[in-house]
Design a protein around this nucleic acid. Structure first.
Lengths: 243, 243
DNA sequence: ACAACTATGTTCGGAAGCGCACAATAGGGA
DNA sequence: TCCCTATTGTGCGCTTCCGAACATAGTTGT
């Protein structure tokens, strides 16, 4: 595992990339770029043909749906356990959802053509990408049922945990307004839920900066959805997002 | 036992199977079985390793999630445009969701081993299965956001339309209780929503038998989610579910 | 035909979340 | 430093949905 950092938790690893065979890595590396991902950057827009896949290292990317009336909701998050742009190898070229950088950092980027070529070889790249896609499906499904059955309080816990797992720190930079957009609820709803967590000593919230003080407690207060997804992801992927 | 046999026109086609190359069909056909799918039958249970994929012809299969407390919600439906059991070729072998027959009929069944073998050839089987999987992802995502933002009334419309597209008739056999389970809402909520539709002359409801009188109207009263999924499915698949 | 069951209709109190309006406050920039 | 703006906190009334209880009406089996 990676030693913990002092300032910037820069972790140049993406578990999918790490798990590729050395032959594949050798073929891929010449065309692999390391990109800086700025907060709020739109990695791809709904309906647009994708040109690259992105493999996050220390950033988090949200997949979110935007309705006609502007309302939105996150359907999944991707960190260093995964890849953004699966429709490139799934064959659809685009999706109706949008990808946005939720937590700034870095990602590796590969041209679509390269990914398709490598995927069609049927090696570990294909294997990994498909298993990752299945874990993504699990996350989306759980989001769907969570949206249906669980309270904003519980969903906030789940969301914080998903973020923690993909960062190497207990601090999250995110305003309540943005979290509300992700969860598809009102900002005031998040304020209230976060207030409860703060009062319970689980987090400290301060103008766009959240620090988690008691992760154990957070897990207890979350709905089962977080744990189900975590387990399924761990089962399907070479390296779990959790440490 | 089968009062509605002549009522539902038996359509032995599954669009994915139809779109396979003749070489593939020839290899597959010896091991292909046609199964009768009874209402309520559990095609596979959450967490269990799958042994077959099912390609519905005139039945509808629901993918649904069941929570610890017994609450449930449908995350997608599969008819003759698709296949149940994608985790066989995605590599996970199982999923945390359950598949249940929502509308009785028939399906073709293929052994997991055969599917994996054929998939790994990288031909049109792989291509089709992956594109179908992407359309399934689109449906799940839309379900997630629909659960978050739309009313029971709208969701009932969406659900009815999804069913209509997968049947060849305007009659649906389904109690309000079961629809409620699918939508993840109370039975009374469905009663009320269906009552409105009935009063508006859009449907006739009669003890587990729904007849749609005015499909156009139903589409107008539905949220955008139905149309988004329909378009995306049409874009991705060889033959649309709609006629 | 009758009983038992299944499916639907209706009502009521309460909880959760929304939309809106507005107050309070912390940080960053001029 | 001070102001400006982004962010958070709070308080309504309103709608939707839930949970529960109960009434009514088809359907089925004997």
């Amino acid at each position: 595992m990676t030693p913990s950092q002092h300032e910037s938790p820069r972790d140049p690893h993406n578990y999918l990339l790490d798990a590729l065979s050395s032959a594949e890595r050798k073929r891929i590396e010449p065309e692999m770029q390391n990109c800086s991902m700025a907060l709020g950057e739109v990695v791809y827009e709904a309906g647009r043909d994708l040109t690259h896949v992105y493999l996050p290292t220390d950033c988090i990317i949200s997949l979110l749906y935007v309705l006609e009336n502007g309302a939105s909701a996150e359907i999944a998050v991707v960190g260093n356990e995964g890849v953004v742009g699966i429709s490139i190898f799934m064959g659809g070229e685009s999706t109706p959802s949008r990808a946005v950088v939720q937590s700034e950092g870095h990602a590796y980027r590969l041209p679509a053509e390269l990914v398709r070529r490598e995927f069609s070889r049927g090696g570990s790249m294909q294997h990994l990408m498909l298993r990752y896609t299945q874990s993504l499906i699990a996350q989306m499904s759980q989001t769907a049922i969570c949206n249906r059955h669980h309270s904003v309080d519980q969903q906030l816990c789940r969301w914080l945990l998903l973020s923690l797992d993909r960062l190497k720190t207990l601090k999250i930079n995110m305003t309540q307004e943005l979290i509300a957009n992700m969860l598809g609820v009102r900002r005031e709803g998040v304020t209230e839920a976060a207030g409860k967590l703060q009062k319970a000593g689980v987090i400290v919230y301060q103008r766009g900066r959240i620090e988690v003080l008691d992760r154990k407690r957070l897990e207890e207060m979350s709905c089962e959805c977080y744990e189900v997804v975590r387990r399924e992801t761990e089962r399907l992927l070479p390296q779990p997002a959790v440490t």
